[in-house]
Design a protein around this nucleic acid. Sequence first.
DNA 1: GCTCTGCCTGGGATCGATCCCATAGCTGGT
DNA 2: ACCAGCTATGGGATCGATCCCAGGCAGAGC
Lengths: 349, 349
Amino acid sequence: MKSGQAAPGGSHPAPRVTIREVANAAGVSRSTASRALTGRGYVAPQVRDRVREVATRLGYVPDATARHLRQQASQSIGVLVSDLSNPFYAGLAAGISQQARKRQYTMMLADDGGSPEVEAEVAEAFVALRVAGVIVTPVSAHVSTYLARQRIPVVEVDRQFAAGVCDAVVVDNGSAARQLTTQLLDLGHRRIALVIDEMHWTTGRDRLAGYRAAFAASGVPLDDSLVVTAGWDVDAARIEAHKLLGRSEPPTAVFAANNVLAEGVWRAAAELALSIPEQLSLVSFDDVSWMSLVRPGVTAVAQDAVALGETAVSQLFERIQSPLAPVRTVLLSATVAARGSTAPPSGAR
Amino acid sequence: MKSGQAAPGGSHPAPRVTIREVANAAGVSRSTASRALTGRGYVAPQVRDRVREVATRLGYVPDATARHLRQQASQSIGVLVSDLSNPFYAGLAAGISQQARKRQYTMMLADDGGSPEVEAEVAEAFVALRVAGVIVTPVSAHVSTYLARQRIPVVEVDRQFAAGVCDAVVVDNGSAARQLTTQLLDLGHRRIALVIDEMHWTTGRDRLAGYRAAFAASGVPLDDSLVVTAGWDVDAARIEAHKLLGRSEPPTAVFAANNVLAEGVWRAAAELALSIPEQLSLVSFDDVSWMSLVRPGVTAVAQDAVALGETAVSQLFERIQSPLAPVRTVLLSATVAARGSTAPPSGAR
DNA sequence: GCTCTGCCTGGGATCGATCCCATAGCTGGT
DNA sequence: ACCAGCTATGGGATCGATCCCAGGCAGAGC
C-alpha cells in the first residue's frame, strides 16, 4: 500500500453552486434563471443564452433532490435482482441500465441474494427515494403488492408473483421446458432427471410443468425420484448432482433448470468422470457463455436477458405514462440452442 | 401476450403520507414527530412510542429526497463500471452492493460501455443526485478530476487514471503478469504472445510491463510482433487470435490480458483445432467461472472482484469520514490459480 | 388617450423533513 | 421564594429548485 501526500480535490471550501449564484452572476432573478435553464415559460432569448452561458461557466449542476422534492417525481428507477454475480441477472441489469439511461433516468440497483427480508428492506428504500418505478425479479409476492399499494409502478421480470396486481415480463418457460424434454425423450431417454431449485415460483413451476407435460404426451412413465431440488449455489447443486449421478440406477440424461444448476451438474459429471454426451446427456435453461465454451457445448434454452431487461423498461414507462391501463403480462418466447451435449442413452446402443 | 383487467394497486387517489399526517394523528407537532422518529433530541418515551406506532400504522416512509435536501448529504453512492455483462465487473458491482447495503446506503449503478462520453454524462448525473461518493472503473482521467472538483469523494477501482487526485484500489497487475509469464518461460516457451486490449491505462500498462520484465529477467529476447492488440469484445478478440495463431511462425503460448480476450483465444484455438496444452499453452488474467469448467482448466490470475468492490467501499467511507486525509492507493495482491492449460512447448519434446 | 393583449420578469409560496431556538413545566438546592 | 438546570414541546426558518401569480412594459387597435 502506497500513499500520496495531497488531500483530494484542492483546498478550497467550495460550497456547491446553486441556481441563486447563477442568477446573481447573470443579473436576473432565480425565477428567470430557472426558466432559462429548464426551458419552461417565457424568457427573452438573449437572457436565456446569457444565463446558460453563466451556468456552464460556473459549472452549475442542478440539485436533483431539490427538483424532485418540488416536482414530486423523480428521474430514477429502482431495480432489484436476486444475484448480480449470476450472468443471467447481470445481463438483465445491463439491459435495464442501457434503456434507462437512454431515457435520461438513473438506475438504483440492489441485489437481495434471494432473501425476502432484504427484498422488503430494499423495497422500502425505493419508496423512501420516491423512485418513478421499480423493476424486480421477485422472491415473494410481498414486494409488488407493497409497492403497488404505495402507488409505485412495478414490473416483475423473469418470475411472476403478483399476477393481476402489476405488470410482468416473463419467458415462456413451460413450452421451452417441454420442447427440451421432448428432445431427450425422442432420443430414447427414459430416466431423465430434472435438477431444479424451487417449484413454487412461476419459473420453477412452469419448467416443471413443461417437463411433466412432455412425459405425459409421450406416454413415458415419470419417476418422481428423478426430480431433485438442489439449492441455490453452484456448490450445493454440485453436491446434489453428485448424489444423483452416483445412484444405483442413475439417470441417463439431466435437465438443469438454470445455469447455476447446470454448472453444478457439469462439475459433478467431471468429478465422476462421466463423459458427456456418451454416458450422460445434459440440457439446461439459460444459455450463458461457458455453455458454448466447453466441449461438448451444452444444449440450452436461450433467454435473452438483455432483451428481457429492455422490454421490462418499456413496460415500466408505459405504466408510468398511463397508470390506469389494465395490467399486462408480456410473454417472450425462448429458443433452444442445440449443441453437442445430448445423444441417445448408452443402453440404446 | 395476455392481459389482466384491473388497473394496478386499487383505485384510491392515495396521497403519500407525510410526517405532518403522522404528527397530527399522534397529536404532536412535526418537530416532536421528527425527533421521535429519528431519535435525535428530547422526546418523552411514551410520546416516542406513540408516534412510532402511528407511523407504522399509517405506513409512513420518510421522503429521502427531502431529508437529503435538508441535511445536504445523501445516503447513496454512485457506481460506474465499464460493462455489467462482463463477470468481472458484475462481481465488482455485487461486492459493492453488499457492502453499501450493509451501511444503509443505496447504490446508483450505471455502465458506460467503455465510452468516455457516457462516463462524463453519468458523472454529471451523480453530481446532480448529490451522491455521498462515487466508485468508478475509469475510462478517462476526466471523471475523477471532475468529481473531485465538485468535492465528491471518488475511489478508482481496477484501473487508476487520476493518481494523486483521488483514492484507488487496484491489484498488483505488474507482478502477477510477471509471475505468469515467468512460468511460461520456465516451461521452455520462447514465443509467448500477449493478447491485450490497450496499453495506456494502468491495467494494460502494468500487465505489459510485467510481461516485459519477465522476459528481461530471463534474458530471452522479446519479439514485439507477439504483442497483439485485440479489441474489446469476444468476437474481435477471437478474430485477432485466429490471425495470430494462424501465422507462419505462431506462438507456442498465449497470455490473455483479461477474461474477454481469453475467451476469444479459447474459441479461436477451438476453431483451429489446436489442442491445449499440447499445441498451445494459455494463461489469462481474471479467473472467471468458465475457466475452471473447461478441460483443461485455464491457468489464470485470480483477482477477487467481490473483495475488490468491498475494499473500494471501505476506502470510500474512510474518505467520506475524513475528507482531508492524504490520498491513498491500495494495492491488493492477486494469486495464480494453476490449472492444466500449460505444458512445455511441443518443439521441446 | 385609453385599453387590451402578449411578452417578460421577480416575489413569494411550496415540496417534506430537519434543526435551531424560544419557552414552558418541573425539580431541587440555597 | 427564587433561580438554576433539566426535560420536553412547538414555531419558524432552512435546504434548492420550481411554479403560480401579480405586474411592468411595449405595441396595436379604437
